[in-house]
């Protein structure tokens, strides 16, 4: 019990540090791909430290309590997600929440952004908030289909409690499916990778921030401590969504292979999980962010509702067909 309480305190803080570490790696890798040197690895930490000493401005026309509370809501909700996700180790709050809860919790940071944007009285932030809502409607649909497909596969293989995250990460989904099912899973995994940059608001789906069009969008009026909290929430959210993708599709561990026992096993699994998280983020976010430009807002919806939705339906059909044969 004491162990659990300790873990519940350590895991969110570790999540913040890992998120900032990946932000640093991401910026260095992106810089190298563009032929630049890039910032030092600890730069995101320095950014946060700097933002904490800056003046924290609340605009006169803003709805003050909403404007100032939304950064906390965003950070706390993403830190809560980490407690439900298997990060190589079993989830801290195992048995208290499942995949559906995680999907709901993933919506909260975006909603906090939208509310904070609307509360800040800036027209740029209002436009950004509307765009964020439109974007949420676009990427939630393929994400939901991807999750349902994996749950269907587990259900048809006879697993109980298919939405429980420890069941999902304890089962190797790729071993359950037949040949059509494997193709279906590959397609669904691709859709999941497609959803990640939208969920994180990275290029090419950063329409709600859009520096060159609407001056930072939702964040236009945020400064100082509030901006630092959003910065941290963004870093943790990257870890959370990538951990979800890893738990669904790459739930492999290394402790069994090397025959580790005792305290070394969860440590090794945790480090391997980090490696997988960084790999997923590198493929779906860093590379994509460097090689593409921003899509127009009207194209974001059509891109999401055409390709990933059709592809994920195809994957779902393949998986269902595979289980029926």
């Amino acid at each position: 019990m004491i162990m659990k309480v300790l873990l519940a305190m350590v895991v969110p803080v570790a999540g913040i540090l890992i998120g900032l570490l990946y932000k640093g790696i991401d910026r260095i890798l992106a810089a190298r791909m563009q032929g630049r040197v890039g910032p030092p690895l600890v730069q995101p930490l320095r950014d946060v430290r700097k933002l904490l000493v800056k003046e924290n401005i609340v605009p006169d026309d803003a709805v003050g309590w909403l404007f100032s509370s939304m950064p906390f809501v965003a950070l706390v909700s993403v830190m809560a997600i980490l407690l439900y996700l298997p990060l190589g180790i079993t989830p801290v709050l195992e048995g208290y929440g499942d995949l559906i809860l995680v999907l709901y919790l993933l919506i909260i940071p975006s909603l906090a952004l939208v509310l904070g944007g609307f509360a800040s009285s800036s027209p740029y932030a209002s436009v950004g908030g509307q765009r964020e809502m439109v974007k949420m409607m676009s990427y939630e649909f393929p994400l939901a289909i991807a999750v349902i497909s994996v749950a269907w596969l587990l259900y048809s293989s006879g697993a109980e409690n298919v939405f429980s995250l420890s069941v999902i990460s304890g089962t190797h989904v790729w071993g359950l499916a037949g040949i059509p099912g494997l193709a279906g899973l590959a397609v669904i995994f691709l859709c999941m990778l497609f959803v990640i940059p939208g969920e994180l608001g990275r290029i090419p789906f950063d329409v709600s921030e859009a520096d060159s069009e609407i001056a930072g969008g939702i964040f236009a009026e945020y400064s100082g401590r509030n901006l630092a909290l959003f910065y941290l929430a963004d870093a943790v959210k990257a870890v959370a969504i990538a951990s979800l993708a890893v738990a669904l599709f790459l739930p492999y561990t290394v402790s069994g292979i090397f025959g580790l026992g005792g305290a070394a096993a969860p440590a090794a699994d945790f480090l391997f999980h980090l490696l997988k998280v960084f790999f997923v983020l590198f493929v779906s976010s860093t590379v994509v962010r460097v090689v593409t430009g921003r899509l127009a807002i009207s194209r974001v919806v059509s891109v999401y509702w055409k390709y990933p939705v059709i592809l994920s339906f195809l994957g779902l059909l393949l998986i269902m067909g595979g289980t029926l044969i």
């Binding site: 890039g38 910032p39 730069q43 320095r46 950014d47 520096d211 009026e221």
Partner: peptide, 18 residues
């Protein structure tokens, strides 16, 4: 990429608030 001020942690931002 030639002079790359991000080496020193400097990035351009879009809003005066940042």
């Amino acid at each position: 990429s030639r002079w790359d001020m991000e080496r020193f942690g400097m990035i351009p931002v879009a809003s005066p608030r940042h």
